[in-house]
Every structure is written in C-alpha cells, then in structure tokens.
Amino acid sequence: MKPEFDNIPLVKNEDKKRFEIEVNGYFAFIDYKENSKQIALIRTESPKELAGTGAAAAVVEKTLEYIEKNGKKLLPYCPYVFAFIEKNPEWKRIVDERFEGYDKL
C-alpha cells in the first residue's frame, strides 16, 4: 500500500454493506457479505477520479487486515481481490480453505 493511504481509516459501512475509504471526497469500496465465520468480498469499485492512485489496492489491503484482525475467513469472490491475493500470496493465510478457487491462489 502506498504510504499516503496509511492514515486513511477503513470504514465498515454496515448500512451499505461495504468496506470503504474516502480519498479527496471520493470513495473506493468493496461490497461484502458476512456470517459469523466468513466475510465474502463481492465487488471492488474505485471511481475514475481515483484511477491510478492505488486507492483500490489500499481498500483491499485494509479490508484484508480487518478480516484477519477479526478472526474471520475470506471468500474472495471479487476478481480484483482474487488477483490481489495472487500477487500477494502471504494473504492466502486468511482465505477459507473450502473456497472453490483456493487451489488457484
């Protein structure tokens, strides 16, 4: 994650069912579904105004940190999150071993 995102807080917006960060008035976010043991990440979105800034990667990394800190297992249905874990295989440690694409990570 780029250093400029270090101090931007991750917000778990339970009303909208998304994890989000606000950068210059714009939101990069990940839609999620959650149960007592797992968090499924469905879709990552970053507006065009944040394109190329690293905001999408920052919200993913902050969300993965949140999932790990809270003792949940990850279901990375979002293609962007899946690709992020492929590029950063140390995060496979929080992926639920029963996830259909687990062996592809």
Results as ranks from 00 to 15, higher is better:
residue 2 K to F: 10
residue 3 P to Q: 13
residue 3 P to M: 02
residue 8 I to K: 05
residue 8 I to F: 06
residue 9 P to K: 13
residue 10 L to Q: 09
residue 11 V to H: 13
residue 12 K to E: 15
residue 17 K to R: 14
residue 18 R to D: 08
residue 19 F to L: 08
residue 20 E to K: 01
residue 21 I to A: 07
residue 24 N to M: 03
residue 26 Y to N: 13
residue 30 I to E: 09
residue 30 I to F: 05
residue 31 D to Y: 08
residue 32 Y to T: 04
residue 34 E to H: 07
residue 35 N to E: 03
residue 36 S to N: 15
residue 37 K to M: 09
residue 38 Q to G: 01
residue 39 I to N: 04
residue 41 L to F: 13
residue 42 I to D: 09
residue 51 A to Y: 09
residue 52 G to L: 05
residue 54 G to E: 05
residue 54 G to A: 05
residue 54 G to D: 06
residue 55 A to N: 04
residue 56 A to Q: 04
residue 58 A to K: 05
residue 59 V to A: 08
residue 59 V to Q: 03
residue 59 V to G: 06
residue 60 V to H: 04
residue 61 E to S: 10
residue 65 E to A: 12
residue 65 E to S: 11
residue 66 Y to H: 14
residue 68 E to S: 14
residue 71 G to V: 00
residue 72 K to Y: 10
residue 73 K to T: 02
residue 74 L to Y: 12
residue 74 L to M: 11
residue 77 Y to W: 10
residue 80 Y to G: 01
residue 80 Y to Q: 02
residue 81 V to Q: 05
residue 83 A to P: 00
residue 84 F to K: 03
residue 89 P to E: 08
residue 90 E to K: 14
residue 93 R to Q: 12
residue 95 V to I: 13
residue 97 E to W: 00
residue 98 R to P: 00
residue 100 E to H: 13
residue 104 K to G: 02
residue 104 K to W: 13
